[in-house]
Nucleic acid binder design. Structure first.
Lengths: 222, 222
DNA sequence: TTAAATACCGACCGTTCGGTCTGTAAATAA
DNA sequence: TTATTTACAGACCGAACGGTCGGTATTTAA
């Protein structure tokens, strides 16, 4: 009795891998790096041990490839978002809400934390992922160029911190809040803090914000 | 043949526990929560399995007590530091350098990360440590009162973010940088960013800073 | 000096871990 | 149709895990 599935080898292979990626990421979110055992991941994915070993050399490689997978998704999401948002006066707020919701809550936050912390003590994993992280940062930087034209990020006022630095600091603030929110979970509080953060940095990057608005207004004229 | 050590029971007990705490914390730093196995900790501490089980019900309890231990040390260090620093114009810089060096580098950073991330997925550990963290924060808050008189943290200018919020945001920025520094290790870069951060927030808390300096000057007059 | 309490020792246990290996099923190329 | 390659299945393995337990050593109280 031969069971034909009607799928090509490539389709079967791809499907299995994606199931494993998703199961790995869900396991990392739910159980942490420490609790995400291979048996558990395979059970969740509905994939046999044999199928897994056919596609991946070992567990670490599965973890690494799953990380690549979620980062690629993140870049794609960001590109789509950055390419379809109107330029308004509260765009800074929208930017940081987007970053928070997509990167510093839910599964992405979980995976980000678990993988980063794992990399701290696992040299092999860190070396494997360093170029992946670098590529990720490059892609994100490029995507944000729809927001702040990187080429014109000069000093806002003489002696003041430039815009890119302010943004980097602000993103680090979000990162810190993301860690803190593990033990002190209170979404409303972090929303408030995000507002305060934006209120704090807005004056420092007003130049850029207004520049974009001026551009938008010009486009409306045409 | 009886070997008298000349130590009291309490001394012996205390010594063993401290050895275990230190070994646990060192293991967490070096191997991470994931790699810090009990056998490894015991070997490092030079303590037998039997001695361990006599003092602790299980591994998680050892982890939790070790966390309490390092947090108590941190509070003590902070109290000493806060009680013995001259009030100068660059005291903000000194404050954040102190916080960074003591909490967001080295062993403390490692343990902070490992334990927090472990708490994310381990409800039991989180419940066990939540009051510990709360007590820690209370103690730290109290210690910082030597720096910023909490009772006078009003609005610096109408509509602006108040001082305490600015400080909390800044500490979150340090936290974010601490995570980032796992994968992107560059002490000089983070020193620079810390400078920029301070330059950014200094104007927002100038009132307080000067107030303290005025107090110091007054004391000199007397 | 003796009895009780406390501190400590390490062999042992059941479980789970990541990884391997032999064999089968399905798709593809000849 | 057949041969080859690719995809998958699951039993099995040694190693390491956290935890237990019966016995010994040291201190302390009677």
């Amino acid at each position: 009795m031969i069971k034909k599935t009607g799928r090509t080898q490539e389709e079967r292979s791809r499907k299995t891998k994606i199931c494993l990626f998703e199961a790995t990421l869900d396991s990392l979110e739910e159980l942490g790096y420490h609790g995400a055992s291979l048996s558990q991941i395979l059970k969740r994915a509905g994939v046999s041990r044999g199928a897994w070993s056919h596609h991946f050399t070992n567990k670490k490689e599965l973890i690494a490839r799953s990380t690549e997978y979620i980062l690629d998704q993140a870049v794609e999401t960001t590109r789509r978002w950055a390419g379809s948002v109107e330029i308004t006066k509260d765009k800074l707020q929208k930017l940081f809400d987007f970053i928070w919701d997509n990167f510093y809550t839910g599964r992405h936050r979980a995976v980000w934390l678990e993988i980063n912390v794992a990399c701290r003590t696992d040299t092999e994993l860190r070396k494997r992922l360093t170029p992946v992280f670098e590529h990720f940062h490059e892609s994100m930087k490029e995507a944000w160029n729809n927001w702040f034209d990187a080429t014109e990020n000069g000093k806002t006022e003489s002696g003041k911190t430039d815009v890119e630095t302010v943004i980097i600091l602000a993103i680090n603030t979000l990162r810190g809040m993301a860690v803190q929110s593990i033990v002190q979970d209170d979404p409303e509080y972090y929303r408030q803090m995000r507002c305060e953060l934006i209120r704090m940095i807005s004056p420092l990057i007003r130049v850029q914000a207004y520049k974009h608005i001026r551009v938008a207004e010009k486009n409306e004229e045409a």
